[in-house]
Amino acid sequence: MDSDLDLLLNAYCDGELSPAETLAMELRLAEDPGLRAEAERIRSLSRSLHSTLADVPVPDGLRADILHDLGLQETTAPPTPTPRRSLLRSFAFGSALMSLLGGMVLGGGTVYLTMRESSEPIAMDIYSAHARALLAPQPFDIASSERHTVKPWFNGKVMIAPDVIDLSAQGFPLAGGRIDVIDGKAVPVLVYRHGGHLISVTVLPMETRLKEGSETHEGFTIKRWRQKDLLYVAISDIAAADLQKFAEKFRAAEQQER
């Protein structure tokens, strides 16, 4: 394959092409099976690389050593680390840290961290559900790129009937839907694709105690926003700027609904 095309194909798989370039590439892919196979090789390599690269265990004492070196302390002890599930663990702790900012009190030489309300377990539920979906043979309960198939599927299964937004023209095709149990309640989750990556959009009742905004942990970005009496939480390992773009497109399309 000529090298310019190879660069473009890599950038396409990474979701780094402009809309016009993406379209041009998709047209090429449609008529070139060899190119499609190459794209699939790149994506499959990316998936194995991500899990291998993230699998490196972080030494248990690293954080404590650094805090000690700098004369800092924390009153909240980090959870006992286990080398295998390090991705989940460090996320749990990192996200606890982030949500604690509101309640952070500063005092002579000591940084006190206190738990802030109950938003953290919900955020953790959503993260765990997404992480579990990535490990499952299929990240969704119903696979369909057809919004009119996905929307009725939720009927009678969950209390929220989300609008299933079609964003394939914007580079985020619908992959399907699933049901997660968040904070003890079954809620709908829309699953989108971008390059070789997945985006989960969890739809929650308005009153869910989660703040709007963004966070990034361990390569996962989370965006939360409220719209039309619902709370949306998008999570993915795509670049933060791409998830931002996704959230903007989603909001704009949702605004057009009904």
Partner: peptide
């Protein structure tokens, strides 16, 4: 600032 900006990134920095 250090607790907020740097501490949550130690794991990815280490890797």
């Amino acid at each position: 600032r250090f607790s907020r900006l740097v501490l949550p990134r130690l794991d990815e920095a280490y890797r």
